[in-house]
Design a protein around this nucleic acid. Structure first.
Lengths: 301, 301
DNA sequence: ATATTTCTTTGACTTTAGTCAAAGGAAAGT
DNA sequence: ACTTTCCTTTGACTAAAGTCAAAGAAATAT
């Protein structure tokens, strides 16, 4: 959309360089006592147990290389390897007590180093640093999330709807039945947000008529909340509605979903009378859309 | 001093982990086309020219290893090596045109990646990210700076005083003569601030009498400004004064040094009448010190 | 039931990274 | 003038990291 200013690029790169030089050295994995970096990383990644396949993709390693490393850790008594119960082609790696001990020691050292570094600051400054890195992490995570239109029947789409329904079921005193989800046939656009290939949010656009679009099932995975992802998906849905030529978009929400109502109000939605008798709705909102299609974006690249 | 809260350690470590995983991969040096990381780093570090000795300490490499790598780059036509004009034991490495081209390409790629990442955010979010990383970088730099008492005649002490004098000479219309510096014999404590072994600031404590301490030549290297280092050195000087049993500390400053007066005022100093006729002073300040020695700190560790 | 795909293991490599010690030329200390 | 220290080069290594291909066992597709 907007071009990225050179100043922001410079600032960000300066930080990257400084940070990797200063802190990268104090990276957790370099603290694996006398262990080669690869093994230390592997130990860390196995954590509470993982299949070799997972480890391979997570660490981006060659299959042969990984196999040997895991066997080396096994020979050292740090890891136990078993056949995966569900699929006997897979191997499952888990830490032994000794492995957990070493990992714990690794964490203790990392804590010690971080503590040493932070001790050079006053408590107030530490607070400001903590806040700054929290903000930076949130924004970096958000920047790495992509929102894509997917088939409403795809596994990711269904997983998101299941997450959405499970959460409403918990939040509503009367529960929530997956039958109340919008039927796939009525879905015009299904957006899924991906964070590193994991589906972490969704939103559905329906088209009750040519003028009107309706947004439903806007949901963000609990682990991806607080990043501003809800707003991002909402914006993308509106963009899709504009592209499809709708002139107004409406949606409903319920008072138990406080954050939602705030999001809609601050996104230009105005409350309107009920347009249906959804049992799970207590507010109805509407927002006019700009004429479609907007000027085609200048495609910076 | 104050213990570091576990929460801050956790927050900071979480960020470290996330950042090195997400961004470390996009580290400048990994962008050295098909070049081994070591060579790419070396190319980057040579930049506008450096002695092998410098490179060795900056990169922390074995002398033999470095020598071979430089020769390899030379064989590839990226680097030119010559005898150092001032000391013929040293070798000077410089980039050739081809070397500069490759480095420029490396930078372009890094810029491109950073831009791609930032393009996932709105302009407003990018601004917030830039601000957050700027704050974080400042605080991390400050945290890495150590302030130590050194001999007033040491090279670092003299280098700082020279920097201080040169700056005043430039700022004062009438100039500043190094003869106006406090004579070494009258220096009770000389503190130097080190950032990664580089002297980046200083402060002098004199002791006109048993009750009174006087702070002079408080200075921070231009490249280390904005970190809060001036306040840090000031605090350390006051601590030294308390330890030595002084009951009050005074200092003077001049109106052309605006930042200084603000620092003193916000550090508990009150303006007092002139206690000398220093040509470079237009304000005089004083601050009472707590009784000495303060309760010995609880030494957390 | 057969072919194809997926996942892991093994063997046989290469490249990168790094260490250590000896040696020689140049500068600095005495 | 001398010894000592500093800086670089060279030889002779080792360890870590990574690649590629073949092969076998298990699951999936046809």
């Amino acid at each position: 959309m907007e071009p990225v200013s050179a100043e922001h690029v410079t600032t960000f790169r300066r930080f990257n360089r400084y940070f990797t030089r200063r802190i990268g050295v104090l990276d957790d994995h370099y603290l694996g006592q006398n262990r080669p970096l690869g093994e230390a990383r592997l130990l860390f990644e196995i954590g509470t147990g993982a299949s070799l396949k997972d480890l391979r993709t997570r660490l981006g390693l060659d299959a042969g290389y990984l196999s040997r490393m895991v066997r080396a850790l096994e020979a050292q008594g740090l890891v136990r390897v078993s056949v995966h119960p569900a699929d006997s082609r897979l191997r499952l790696a888990e830490l032994t007590a000794a492995g957990r001990d070493e990992l714990a020691e690794q964490h203790r050292r990392a804590d010690g180093l971080a503590e040493g570094l932070l001790s050079g600051l006053s408590e107030e400054q530490r607070g400001r640093l903590a806040e700054a890195v929290t903000v930076a992490e949130r924004l970096l995570r958000l920047a790495g999330i992509t929102v894509r239109a997917v088939d409403a029947g795809s596994a990711d789409a269904r997983a998101c709807l299941a997450g959405f329904a499970a959460e409403l079921d918990e939040r509503f005193p009367e529960g929530y039945d997956t039958a109340d989800l919008v039927p796939p046939a009525r879905i015009a656009v299904f957006l899924v947000a991906y964070e590193e290939e994991r589906a972490v949010g969704c939103g559905v656009l329906c088209a009750p008529d040519a003028d009107t679009a309706e947004i439903r099932h806007l949901w963000v995975h609990p682990e991806a909340r607080g990043l501003g992802l809800g707003r991002r998906v909402l914006t993308e849905l509106e963009r899709a509605a504009v592209e499809r030529g709708h002139r107004v978009v409406r949606l409903d929400t319920h008072e138990v979903l406080k954050e939602a109502a705030t999001l809609y109000r601050t996104s230009g939605y105005a409350e309107i009378p009920a347009y249906d008798e959804d049992a799970h709705a207590s507010y109805w909102f509407e927002k006019p859309l700009p004429p479609s299609p907007p000027v085609p974006p200048p495609v910076p690249r």
